[in-house]
């Protein structure tokens, strides 16, 4: 099967009929930039626990993350676009995660993969951060313990949708979050306590005595 000319899509058109051989593109700048960004996200896998194994399964042959322009794992945060936090984040790891996020250049996004990263999950105890959104801003939460590769792929597609809706003129998207100088925290302490409060039945399960 030989190579055939690809049909032109709505984004770029090649004007060969006029014989000049020049290509030209007419589009909104936002659309073009976002299309480029969304289709070539470089993930930084911050894999800590079980979710990292499912992340590896997603990257391996059967689910093939490369289909979404993400086959280039960027293990250095300085060349990465998306932080995929896969797994639980204990308090000891919190400064590390925070620092990796700070090292990533703008524009950057974050996917919180799995229940533990998103909310502490089943580890409602002294050691685990109850949701990484108390440390860094999160764009997409992928539920599951661990999420199936399909779930992660869906989260990635959602992130791509989000990226495609961004406006370059909206400077607020690229704001870096600075810690509160007094407490050293990124969101108010009351908000952290509220986010970390267990929901529903879990209060009674663990506080019912022995």
């Amino acid at each position: 099967m030989g190579l055939t000319a690809r049909p032109s899509d709505n984004l770029a058109r090649t004007d060969t009929a006029s014989g000049s051989g020049e290509s030209w593109v007419a589009t909104r700048l936002d659309l073009l930039v976002n299309w480029g960004r969304a289709g070539s996200l470089w993930p930084m896998p911050f894999g800590t626990a079980c979710c990292a194994i499912e992340f590896m399964a997603t990257a391996a042959s059967r689910f093939d993350l490369a289909r979404f322009g993400m086959e280039r794992m960027s293990f250095s945060p300085r060349q990465a676009d998306v932080l995929i936090c896969a797994g639980r984040v204990p308090f000891k790891l919190a400064p590390v995660l925070r620092r990796i996020w700070q090292q990533m250049p703008q524009p950057k996004w974050c996917i919180s993969m799995g229940a533990c990263a998103s909310s502490g999950g089943m580890f409602d105890n002294y050691a685990v951060v109850q949701g990484i959104d108390t440390i860094i801003p999160v764009d997409v939460y992928v539920p599951g313990c661990p999420p199936r590769p399909e779930g992660l792929l869906y989260g990635i597609l959602m992130l791509q949708e989000k990226v495609k809706r961004e406006r370059m003129s909206d400077a607020s998207l690229r704001n870096e979050m600075d810690p509160d100088p007094e407490s050293g925290l990124y969101i108010p302490p009351q908000a952290i306590d509220e986010l970390s409060e267990p929901f529903g039945n879990s209060v009674h399960q663990t506080r019912s005595g022995l």
């Binding site: 626990a49 079980c50 797994g87 639980r88 790891l93 089943m122 105890n125 002294y126 050691a127």
Partner: peptide, 26 residues
């Protein structure tokens, strides 16, 4: 080490035997 210390053993003391099994997965 200790960057992934999640307090499994502590949680186990607050769970019935069958309830501990999901922690052994992880």
């Amino acid at each position: 080490i200790g960057y992934l210390h999640c307090g499994f053993e502590k949680i186990g003391e607050y769970r019935q035997y069958n309830q501990v099994i999901p922690w052994t997965d992880r």
